[in-house]
């Protein structure tokens, strides 16, 4: 049985922990708001990019389309871009993405395909390294980045496109966590190369924009547009991740604060009970001592 002093110390330490988790929760809440704003501000660009791409893609016929869109015609080598957070203490956020990617790797390997992994973010790298270390070809560290800008995404996209042009892979899939709400982030896999033409948008626009003029021609605009679209998708994934990470961290820290509170209550009860027991014991000793006289 722990002594009174031990109990007192434990209560003090749990209280200190609770203060830290509480502070982290508040920081996460503030950062979440900013991350959400950034994600929302980026939405118009992604949307318009989608419509423009659909417009152009519908006018360029199959053989003229750039390889980034049609792919290499094979699907032997897969590149998985796994985007996770740089920091932990955010519940199951990172492991959820990693697990989703891992299931995918396992499936591809059992089908006899070659798998290459590009890790964005430290945590995903740490998790995947254990099992699939030999498949990881590169990692991107965003630890120093305070605020994710389009330039960061562009760099990653350039890396991916460079690998593709060197014939390093046939299919590229992006893993990230879609931000649904503060309490729900859904690990998502998105195929980036070959690009999936936004089918429904194309059909809608086909007849209305029949007389589009292109400067220069449609094929070269498309060739320029698709790499940019990859950057946009990576950017979106990074922003969703940032918002999701903060959401997950907020929930995790809220839980931790609550757990600490429960623990303090329990410890306080034990502490008081022991204190009373000790008082009672001392009283008995005094009384029985007096009786003995």
């Amino acid at each position: 049985m722990a002594s009174l002093k031990d109990l007192r110390n434990r209560i003090a330490s749990v209280k200190a922990t609770q203060k830290i988790t509480k502070a982290m929760q508040m920081v996460a809440a503030a950062k979440l708001r900013r991350a959400q704003e950034a994600a929302e501000a980026a939405r118009p660009y992604a949307q318009r990019m989608g419509t423009v791409l659909a417009n152009v893609a519908s006018t360029v016929s199959g053989s003229d389309a750039p390889p980034l869109m049609t792919g290499t015609g094979k699907d032997d080598t897969h590149l998985l871009v796994v985007a996770t957070a740089e920091r932990g203490l955010c519940g199951g956020f990172n492991s959820q993405i990693a697990r989703h990617a891992r299931d995918h790797v396992r499936k591809l390997l059992s089908e006899g395909k070659t798998v290459k992994i590009l890790c964005v973010g430290k945590k995903g790298y740490d998790i995947l390294r254990r099992e699939y270390g030999q498949h990881i070809i590169d990692r991107v560290d965003l630890r120093e980045v305070k605020r994710i800008g389009f330039a960061n995404a562009d760099e990653i996209a350039k890396k991916i496109i460079g690998l593709f042009e060197n014939g390093q892979f046939d299919v590229c899939t992006l893993f990230y966590s879609e931000f649904k709400s503060v309490i729900s982030q859904i690990p998502t896999a998105l195929q980036v190369i070959p690009a999936q033409a936004p089918a429904d948008g194309a059909v809608e626009n086909q007849d209305s924009d029949a007389a589009y003029e292109y400067e220069p021609d449609a094929a070269s605009i498309l060739a320029d547009l698709i790499p940019r679209n990859i950057s946009v998708q990576v950017f979106r994934a990074l922003l969703e991740n940032a918002a999701g990470e903060m959401g997950a961290k907020m929930t995790a820290m809220d839980n931790a604060t609550r757990n600490a509170g429960e623990m303090i209550d329990k410890l306080s009860i034990t502490y008081n009970r022991q204190r009373q027991a000790q008082i009672t014991k001392e009283l008995i000793e005094i009384i029985s001592g007096a009786e003995a006289l």
């Binding site: 501000a41 118009p44 660009y45 318009r48 800008g149 389009f150 400067e215 220069p216 950057s231 946009v232």
Partner: peptide, 24 residues
């Protein structure tokens, strides 16, 4: 007229004319 960059929407308003530096 709408001017959007990946980070945000810069301009969205009614305008009379816009001069654009096209590639051509």
């Amino acid at each position: 007229f709408e001017l959007v960059s990946p980070e945000r929407l810069l301009v969205s308003e009614e305008v009379v004319q816009v001069v654009i530096p096209g590639t051509e």
